[in-house]
């Protein structure tokens, strides 16, 4: 009796273990099945998207990639940030279909692409950004004209001023502070920000030699934020309370504060587009996964991500996704 009882309990124990295990298996199987069934409608589009390009847009691409993966679990976006200059190289070499760039593609890069493929790459404006002139948060300077900005940062003075501006006393004659030379901070030579500032703010002139060059916009902001007699230029998305963005005086003589509205409608003089270049032969349709990505970028969700990444979303009128067939 005693032995039987023991045996029985042992058997029971064994049974319960088996059943627990099998229950676990069933549950897992069910879960997989559910996931499969739930993923079924989306599994039509799947694959890995590749993109190579701008450092500036790295954060943005990453967030878009996450959102895309959330919408379509079978699609992943792999992004390599190698600077804007790496995008045309990769597009021409055919290693990627998407090339995000923080500046427009140059004529020679476009020509190389055409030589290789026989058609130009598609240019999509996917977000807006601006270059800011920043000063220390306590700096009393109210605004700056574009001629002054050129006179401060360049040696060539192509924008129309006659004298280079080197000292705060010349810029703010009635103020006691700050004084001395304007300490200049900017980006390094190869960056898109450097090139764009040269083109738009210096009228294609030459930079001064004594500008401190930093490897990123946030480094520029940090350097300006810690010294009161400094001025620098940086991308909009890096702005923080350590520094103040200077309003720029436009051709009509009104000072334009850089804000979402003025950057969106292009009234702020140093606003720019961020681009996505797409390699698509004419007459062909994009694969569905790529279409899904472009759809996401131009959707309200995609543009909310733009804002979350610190850039300025496209104006409502420009949010119709191109390159889609439906």
């Amino acid at each position: 009796m005693k032995g039987k009882g023991l045996k029985g309990s042992r058997l029971q124990h064994y049974c319960s273990r088996v059943s627990r295990q099998s229950r676990l298996w069933v549950a897992t199987g069910l879960m997989f099945f559910c996931a499969f069934a739930w993923g079924q409608p989306n599994s039509v589009v799947s694959g890995t998207l590749g993109a190579v390009g701008s450092d500036t847009m790295a954060g943005l691409m990453l967030r878009w990639g996450e959102a895309l993966n959330h919408r379509y679990p079978n699609i992943t976006l792999q992004f390599q940030a190698g600077g804007s200059a790496s995008a045309p190289t990769a597009l021409i070499a055919g290693t990627t279909r998407f090339g995000p760039m923080s500046r427009p593609i140059t004529e020679s890069e476009r020509q190389q692409f055409i030589d290789r493929y026989g058609y130009p790459p598609h240019e999509l404006s996917v977000a807006r950004d601006a270059l800011l002139l920043v000063v220390h948060r306590h700096n009393p300077l109210a605004s700056l004209s574009r001629q002054q900005a050129d006179a401060i940062f360049s040696t060539s003075l192509y924008c129309g001023d006659s004298e280079p501006l080197r000292r705060w006393e010349e810029l703010l004659p009635e103020q006691q502070w700050p004084y001395g030379k304007i300490a200049l901070h900017g980006r390094n030579l190869a960056s898109g920000t450097h090139g764009l500032f040269q083109e738009r703010a210096l009228c294609n002139g030459q930079f001064r030699r004594d500008i401190s060059e930093h490897p990123g916009s946030s480094a520029v902001i940090a350097a300006v934020g810690e010294s009161p007699n400094a001025m620098g230029y940086a991308g909009y998305n890096h702005l923080n309370p350590m520094v103040r963005a200077l309003p720029l005086i436009n051709a009509e003589g009104t000072a334009i504060i850089p804000s979402v509205a003025t950057i969106q409608d292009n009234t702020y003089p140093l606003s720019r587009d961020l681009y996505l270049y797409v390699n698509l032969p004419p007459g062909e349709a994009l694969p569905l996964a790529e279409q899904a990505f472009i759809e996401l970028i131009f959707s309200d969700e995609g543009q909310r991500i733009v804002q979350a990444a610190g850039f300025v979303p496209l104006p409502q009128a420009q949010r119709t996704p191109p390159l889609l067939d439906d």
């Binding site: 450092d55 190698g82 200059a85 045309p88 190289t89 390094n188 030579l189 190869a190 060059e213």
Partner: peptide, 12 residues
């Protein structure tokens, strides 16, 4: 600083 962004074959 510059090499990551210099396009290969360019003057930079």
């Amino acid at each position: 600083i510059e090499l990551p962004e210099a396009s290969p074959g360019g003057i930079t």
